[in-house]
């Protein structure tokens, strides 16, 4: 509840055109928005709000948060468009899936804190459900294959905190769990940029049958010690991930999702219990103080059932 202001100073709102809105898996779409301003500014792990309703329409009323999937550049390497990948789960995403190329959408961002610079050594991403989406841009950045947040690529020096690949991670692996193979979205995108992908499905229709955290448990048991572990997915999965990693001395971050009405810190909808340095627990806004938190700082629900 401490209202401190990692307010996204660079965030702004505008109407942008839909360039593509294509199905890439069951109930899963990739939306490409013509927005060079956002494309130049946004960092891996940050998100944007998209209002699915037509301009002037009151229903669905609110915007929805989406993690940056990737930034598209033109032939000269200048950022031109922003991609998000979403699963249709409710009224907002169902309305979004109806939007066609050329239509205008209201968009605001970049929002949230994003990930820090690349750790030296191998990194493992653990994704559940639609939680793979932040890891494409993150993998490209941490592997030194793409720079983000350049205000004017190639001309101005990057602003402080920009995601420029000066040093990079030695390898990146995505452990990706979904209910069934038809929901796997973007696996080739990850492989094409050099991220190793290992899959788990609840029904065994692809990869390991079982939880994605079991893939990580096996690797840790075999002695793998990545320089960093990053998770994104349902909170029960993230709670299991945090418990699994805790005994090892491996830094682990999680990117949280929560219901948001605004995305920029005004509504106080998206709070999560975060352990403070003094040991107290305080409710903090995912949209401005997150969405990326140290897994050890999150006060996970004690009753979290197995995911």
């Amino acid at each position: 509840m401490n209202a401190d202001p990692n307010a996204p100073a660079g965030a702004s709102q505008r109407l942008v055109a839909v360039r593509e809105n294509v199905a890439i898996a069951r109930d899963t779409y990739r939306l490409r928005l013509d927005d060079p301003i956002l494309a130049r500014a946004i960092l891996p792990g940050q998100f944007l709000m998209i209002r699915p309703a037509a301009e002037g329409a009151d229903d669905p009323l609110l915007g929805r948060p989406f993690a940056l999937y990737d930034v598209t550049t033109d032939a000269a390497g200048a950022p031109t468009a922003v991609d998000v990948v979403y699963l249709v789960v409710g009224r907002g995403t169902a309305a979004l899936a109806q939007r066609r190329p050329g239509e205008q959408l209201s968009v605001w961002g970049p929002l949230g804190n994003g990930f820090g610079p690349p750790p030296a050594g191998p990194v493992i991403f653990v994704a559940g459900g639609i939680g793979q989406t932040p890891f494409l841009a993150l993998g490209r950045w941490w592997l030194g294959k793409m720079s983000y947040g350049l205000q004017s690529k190639g001309l101005d020096p990057p602003c402080p905190g920009s995601a420029v690949g000066l040093s990079s991670s030695s390898s990146a692996t995505l452990l990706y769990g979904v209910r069934t193979a038809a929901l796997l979205a973007g696996v080739n995108d990850f492989r094409q940029v050099g991220i190793d992908v290992e899959i788990a499905t609840d029904d065994g229709s692809a990869g390991h049958r079982g939880f994605v955290t079991e893939l990580l448990a096996r690797r840790l048991k075999q002695g793998e010690r990545p320089a960093r572990i990053v998770g994104c997915g349902p909170s029960s999965m993230l709670a299991a991930l945090a418990r699994l990693v805790e005994p090892f001395d491996i830094p682990c971050e999680v990117s949280l999702e929560n219901h948001m009405a605004c995305g920029f810190g005004a509504c106080f909808s998206c709070v999560v219990p975060i352990r403070q340095p003094a040991g107290t627990i305080d409710l903090r806004r995912v949209c401005v103080e997150g969405p990326v938190f140290a897994a050890s700082a999150v006060e996970w629900p004690a009753s979290a059932s197995p995911h």
């Binding site: 509840m1 401490n2 209202a3 009151d58 229903d59 669905p60 009323l61 609110l62 009224r91 907002g92 929560n258 219901h259 009405a261 509504c267 106080f268 909808s269 998206c270 709070v271 999560v272 305080d282 409710l283």
Partner: peptide, 24 residues
């Protein structure tokens, strides 16, 4: 501290909130 989540939910052309005066 305010109320636990979920604190807001969208409704038809509106939203419900129960933030609970979360403030310092």
């Amino acid at each position: 501290a305010g109320n636990p989540t979920p604190r807001t939910v969208e409704t038809s052309s509106g939203m419900l909130n129960a933030i609970g005066l979360d403030n310092d």
